[in-house]
Amino acid sequence: MKPAVKRIIFFAALIVFWELGSRFELWHETILPSPVSVYDSLVAGFADMTLVYDLAASFRRLLIGLVAAVIIGTGVGILLARSKTADETLGTLVLALQSVPSIVWLPLAMMWFGLGEGSIIFVVILGGTFVMILNVRTGIKNVDPLFIKAARTMGSNGLDLFIKVIMPASVPYFVTGARLAWAFAWRALMAGELLSSGPGLGYTLRYASDFGNMSLVIGVMIIIGVVGAIVDLMIFQRIEKNVLKRWGLET
């Protein structure tokens, strides 16, 4: 059986079980709304465009934050890989900050940037930057010494060696870094939006919760999960797979 077929059967069974449970009142509608009412609230949300605006607003923040995280992460990652002093000082700070969930920064960010876009984007950037830094640093440090030796015997050194050999050789790590940065940024974005003002998927989720609209809460959760999975599978895993194959890292 094809994986796609298995998947469809699995999800269909899950939804049927969920619907039947609701019909036979194994749980109360206010605790876990049925798939049909979740579907209805999703349709209503898209029909009156709120969810469309939410998606657009969330993606805008995510895109700005992710691009900034990838750029900053690459820059700092290169610095840490090339300078031992930077690695021993700034590198330790990065490691420490990396273990702090980025949403923890939100109170500070609100003081600095106010209650709106600025603070959410700041949290998204923080969410993606550290993992990008660490991957870029590892990638550059792990370049096969044989590539460097071979390039040197062919007259390459200094900046030329770095740009033509070391950077391309670490591309697989860059891609993995960007993929993880996206995953962390997406989570940070949702957390940030929950605690901030709208529009945005996270904001709508909290708004629905405040009004006891549990079917919309679940609907938004499903959107968050589906978007996350689609971007990961369709974009990042595909790129990663191609790169790993080309770079000869996949058997």
Binding site: D144, L146, F147, K149, A150, R152, T153, M154, G155, N157, V165, P168, A169, V171, R246, W247, G248
Partner: peptide
């Protein structure tokens, strides 16, 4: 004193750039 193009080197591994 340093590597140069007057001396080509072939290693045990081909060391081709995969990209």
């Amino acid at each position: 004193i340093k590597p140069g193009k007057d001396r080509g080197m072939v290693f045990q591994q081909a060391a081709l750039f995969p990209w």
